Simulated assay, not measured.
Amino acid sequence: MSTTPRKPWPYPLRRAMQALPLIVVIAVSNFFWLRLAPGDLADVIAGEAGAATPEYMAELRRQFGTDQPLAIQFAAYLKRLAHFDLGWSFRYNESVVHLILERLPATALLLVSALVIALVIGCAAGTLAAVSRWRALDVAVSVISTLGFATPLFWLGLMLMVLFSAHLHWLPSGGMTTLGAATHGWAYIGDVATHMAMPVFCLAAYYLAIYARLMRASVLEVAGLDFVRTARAKGVSRFRTVLSHVVPNALLPIVTMSALQFGTLLSGSVAIETVFSWPGLGQLALDAVSSRDLNLLLGILFVSSLLVLAVNLLADLAYGWFDPRIEVER
């Protein structure tokens, strides 16, 4: 009796299923790690009020659910996650999902813009540096990338603010839009673009330096492989060889690095959003930490973890596009 073999699930779906245990581990770890921090939202409210009676503190903890045993709180947390419910922010008196969805577009705009700029300019600079090895352009790229790698993001942001906002008055010092300006269409897009110029450049500078150095080393390594020498021996021009053979293969380490560093990029946005008063998830997370709003902080950490896992999945799928020899459908 012959049996027809079952068709395997698509690769993206299999990877998503493999990530489910990791998501559970992340959710459990975040819950218990945050419970190790001293204080809660009731302590913050009492401190802001100046004083509070023990009865008032007990009533606050009863409303917030922090008076229950840790096991019961953990069971309630897992039940909410099973129903895709991230809980309620007692600090903002709003749903955590609503707060995250309200701030997520601003953070996504900042991160995507910075990542695209860092990848495009960094890869182009690294390729040019490798092609002109040990020449003036290579030295210039190496010096600038070293400075970008060593400069603290918050210091660079403050210096940009002092130069372009305080002295030159070219760019706004903070926020996402001009307060009180009822702009629409292209005027609104231009207003947002001027506000995001400094934070995007500041966030992209560090990663641009990393990608430039990595791309230079990767191009030099690929340029010495046999298939590149074969292409040159067949009469293919140097420009076409670099563009068609060297660069696509040299981009594989860049894809890996960008996926691994997306979490670092997301955490770096906290400092940038704080310096430039950018209304994104980073500033919301900082407010949640200072106010001990654990439900909101747990929701932000959980959503951030999902974003990092999604970016790593996209990086795996991108391997097959850059190098057809890699089979992602096996």
Rank of each mutant, 00 (worst) to 15 (best):
L70A: 06
A71Y: 12
R80C: 02
K79F: 09
I72Q: 15
L101F: 15
E94Q: 15
D43C: 03
P38W: 09
S29Y: 12
H83N: 12
L101K: 12
E59D: 13
V116I: 15
S95T: 08
F74R: 02
W88Q: 09
D67T: 00
I72N: 11
E102M: 10
L78T: 07
L34D: 06
P69I: 10
A37F: 13
A108Y: 10
R103K: 15
V44I: 14
A71D: 11
R62Y: 12
V28I: 14
R80W: 09
V28K: 02
F64A: 05
L78D: 08
V116S: 07
R91L: 13
R80Y: 05
N93E: 15
A114L: 07
A118R: 01
I72V: 15
L119K: 00
A46Q: 06
G39I: 11
L81S: 03
L99A: 06
Q63F: 10
I26M: 14
P69N: 06
F90T: 00
D40K: 04
F31S: 05
F74T: 03
T107L: 07
V96S: 00
G47D: 12
E48P: 00
L70S: 03
Q68D: 10
N30M: 13
A108L: 15
E94Y: 06
V116L: 13
M57F: 08
V96C: 04
L81P: 00
L70R: 05
L110V: 05
E94V: 05
S29P: 00
I117V: 14
L41Q: 10
L70V: 13
L111M: 13
E94L: 11
V44F: 06
V116T: 12
A114G: 02
A71K: 05
L101P: 01
A75N: 09
A42S: 10
T107E: 06
I45Y: 06
A75E: 13
L78Q: 08
R91Y: 14
A27L: 10
L34N: 03
R80Q: 14
V28S: 11
E102W: 11
G47V: 07
I117A: 08
A42Y: 04
L41M: 15
L86C: 04
A118D: 03
L99W: 05
R80L: 09
S113A: 13
L81T: 02
L104S: 03
A106I: 05
D67E: 08
Q73S: 04
L109W: 10
L115W: 03
